[in-house]
Design a protein around this nucleic acid. Structure first.
Lengths: 258, 258
DNA sequence: TCCAAGGCAAGAGCAGTGCTCTCTTTTGTG
DNA sequence: CACAAAAGAGAGCACTGCTCTTGCCTTGGA
């Protein structure tokens, strides 16, 4: 316990210097917690610095010692949200088989975990995958955490590629260069056509979740989980994952509880 | 009150009764125009009733004679946005072949038109397909216009089904009932599996557009239009559209007429 | 141990918001 | 023409994000 560097959020200096630093960390966390509470309750647009301060028993101006502006608070929440959904995805991946495991099941488990997280935290999901807030454009701090889910999806496909192989989709001649560039950026051992399909599937996955969450499926889709699982399985096939249970394209049965 | 025709609301063509009505219509339109201007410039969250009134040379309270609240103004803009993107989709459909025309091309044209509209009106797109605004939940008035794009996509696939047939995707047993229900609701002459694929493709299409528009593709995708066209073509195949230029593929056999 | 420095909270205040009320002006119609 | 309905004007309330100044008090060094 001693030698282990506890990952204290942002501070790489492991030693907690004094009561002052500690208090600062605690207050910062308390502010974010309360802000997250209000976010969950009312949405990003109604998140009010003054209300957060009020709830914490401090005056609004004091809060500016911790976050220079409302947008900075929002940015912190965005980073946390990306981390939370990324963590959910990683946990689902690790819970479902190993690098050699049943790849379609892992793919589905990851996607399902993202959906579950989104349904449980709709406003936080909207914060990161909905329209950009107020007049806000994502700062640099968010790009790392933002890629975690994508990395997990890439990892699942890469594992499949290494252990079992992929049914590499046909190459679109217009995307030859772009596919090569993507593959080099994302996973240099994957065929370009797979990289293309992967990025497409990534965006489409969130299209399914967003439509469900933002009410577009109201009065259109009833069996949402079933539709999701079906579509996600098809997305898995589109990136080349080999579904043992359905070699040609028949119907798969249940699987992979959560 | 007896002889008075009450429901003109939606039909301004019918006998504009007097200068007063005309003025009301004009002022209402001016308010919406200015609001749309501010929406395009700054986004929905920064749309201010007072600023709109100021720009129009009226006092803010006067604006409440036309829209009972800010949310009502937003709702009007939402309806207009749905209508605009729906109109763009319909125009693209009508511009590209006829009911017998090259179905994958029509499909791609419609999707491309939606994307073009979104790129040209990002804030309006975010208003309707991004996260629900402030604490706002879509009222009944929006359900009609909201379905126009979906109707166009359905229409293209239905035309294909009637004239050329579809490569009906395999039926997922877990979605048998849901698929039948959807088909009955959306297009009763389409096979249930096609209805399922259509709804999935619909959501996934907007996933692609949203990711591009909301910055998720930053530093990931360069050739965005090419990727979009590729993915949309694949979505077309997934609903059963027969691509003459590439007969093989995952879907398998053609045929399956009415 | 004492003391200056700086982190921190508090309060007042500014400019802006959505919305409601009251009062006055305009305007179409009996 | 007279009158009621519609529309505009203005003040005001409660709220917002943010800034600035004023003190308190913890902290680190002498």
């Amino acid at each position: 316990m001693f030698g282990a560097p506890i990952a204290w959020q942002t501070d790489p200096m492991s030693t907690i210097r004094g009561a002052r630093e500690r208090a600062r960390i605690e207050v910062t966390a308390a502010i974010k917690d309360e802000a997250r509470r209000q976010l969950a309750a009312e949405g990003a647009a109604k998140l009010s610095l003054r209300a957060v301060a009020r709830e914490l028993g401090m005056v609004s101006s004091a809060l500016y010692r911790y976050f220079p502006s409302r947008d900075d608070l929002l940015t912190a929440l965005i980073v946390d949200a990306y981390d939370a959904v990324g963590e959910a995805a990683e946990a689902a991946r690790d819970r479902t088989g190993g690098p050699a495991g049943p790849h379609p099941d892992r793919w589905l488990a990851v996607a399902g975990a993202v959906r579950e997280w989104a349904l449980a935290h709709p406003h936080e999901y909207a914060l990161i995958y909905g329209s950009p807030v107020p007049g806000y454009t994502a700062p640099q701090d968010t790009v790392g955490p933002a890629s975690r889910v994508g990395q997990v999806l890439i990892g699942v496909v890469r594992d499949a590629h290494r252990t079992e192989g992929l049914a590499v989709p046909p190459q679109d001649p217009l995307l030859r260069a772009e596919g090569a560039r993507m593959a080099a950026d994302l996973a240099d051992d994957l065929p370009p056509a797979v990289a293309v399909a992967l990025v497409s599937a990534w965006a489409q996955l969130f299209g399914l979740i967003s439509f469900e969450l933002f009410g577009q499926f109201t009065r259109v889709v009833e069996a949402r989980e079933e539709l999701f699982r079906h579509a996600v399985r098809e997305l898995g096939r589109s990136v080349g994952l080999l579904d043992g249970r359905r070699p040609g394209g028949g119907g798969g049965a249940a699987g992979a509880g959560a």
